[in-house]
Write a protein that binds this DNA or RNA. Structure first.
Lengths: 241, 241
DNA sequence: AAGTGGTCTAGACCACACT
DNA sequence: GTGTGGTCTAGACCACTTA
């Protein structure tokens, strides 16, 4: 029934999710794992891994001894904090059709703090790319990214700067972008940020301050992002561990 | 080597983590999965599940074809947002020895918004428990919890209100607390909150607004929490999906 | 070429929920 | 008791990295 790639688990997950969205399960009850396995011609392990991923996403609910159930539609989550990868996709998940505006591309010298975070020397050059994500001309996210010049091996142009950051890194730094380590920090909007995001000054915002790492676990960029809370709100499922 | 409960996977994970903390792996390289499995007398599946959990926690790093490695100590995370369950434990993880102060226990009538969130009728009674978590007399977290009176089946006293919320719910509501659905919202501290947390008014804070659900997926409580950003900061690992 | 993690299988037994 | 999800096993093959 399925091909080899992408993984059977991912195909299984997508297939079950589609059946959920089509309301194919009476009363929200999903068939037993053994039944799903024999129906779809895969092992129960594969089914279980697919169901686990759907459970972490909040799509389904499992009760030991009782069964597996579709979660209420109201509880489905649009933007899970851990899964944000590009703001374009986050905005699309919210039903927006985002546009990207590159506000600034410049070179700066790294201050001592930035140098320490990126494991470079103070006063080394960094490339600064400031991007604004808009939905219907309303600014939603302001992102400021700093990448050490020495990691940029290929020439870049205006178009490259418009790309999602991980594409830029793979294209111009020939590095794999592996993960972000993020801090969530509440701040008051200063005049500059308030002006760009078109909100009153001294509004409370939250920001991401994050360092991006490559597959070798070396820091390759620093990103600071500001969000319009009224247009984009993050949700989170917290489970007992 | 191991007992049956807690699960082999959890014991395996704890054992590997202990060896990591003891610096038993030369050069940060963790032995191959097959070797770990035969050493510890469990199947490779069990080892893999344990390693997966250590990876999501940010403790280790896996590279296909290359090996498994200990993550840099600086990248270890103290309070993963998704894993917060009681604020006592979060503060302990930060090296604090927290105390809890119950500020208020009262009954209120539910307004229309709260009633909708908790799926009760407007003007139904809710029990309000306001708690402050301190570290060395410095307030760190203010939490305000609202539980419909009708779900409280056992009598409660002052001591019960001091318990972590999930213990209170299991004790007095005879319900299993399953998960929270949380929103992260930046706000300006008003005078009341600022006074309680001992910070200047109009400081930017972030808050959790969250609804707690039982195993049957029914809302059982509403919680609003305020955090001293300077004393407790949340970190997050975001991976490419 | 050899060694590593990634995926998948078939089957066993356990813990829990229903009725 | 019966059926469900939860845990675990032993073994196969694949994809990737490293030398």
């Amino acid at each position: 029934m399925f091909k080899r790639s992408p993984s059977l688990t991912e195909q299984t997950k997508a297939y079950i999710k589609e059946r959920i969205l089509n309301n194919e399960f009476n009363g929200g009850r999903i068939p037993p794992e053994t039944e799903l396995a024999s129906d779809m011609g895969v092992s129960r392990t594969t089914i279980r891994e697919a169901l686990s991923r759907l459970e972490t996403e909040g799509t389904i609910l499992r009760k030991q001894g009782a069964g597996t159930f579709v979660n209420q539609p109201g509880l489905q989550i649009k933007s899970r904090l851990e899964e944000i990868w590009s703001y374009e996709r986050v905005l699309e998940a919210h039903g927006y059709t985002p546009t990207v505006r590159v506000l600034r591309v410049a070179e700066e010298k790294a201050g001592p703090q930035l140098a320490a975070e990126l494991n470079i020397a103070a006063n080394d050059s960094v490339l600064v790319i400031e991007k604004l994500f808009l939905e219907d001309d309303r600014p939603v996210v302001l992102a400021c990214n700093r990448i050490p010049k020495q990691t940029i091996v290929n020439p870049y142009d205006e178009a490259a700067c418009r790309l999602p950051l991980y594409d830029f890194v793979e294209l111009c730094c020939q590095q794999d972008f592996s993960y972000y380590l993020s801090e969530i920090i509440p701040v008051l909007a200063d005049d500059t940020v308030a002006g760009i995001l078109q909100i009153p000054p001294h509004t409370a915002l939250f920001t991401f301050e994050e360092v991006g790492y490559n597959a070798e676990n070396e820091p390759i960029l620093k990103a600071s992002s500001y969000f319009r809370d009224d247009l984009l709100r993050f949700r989170l499922i917290r489970r007992r561990i």
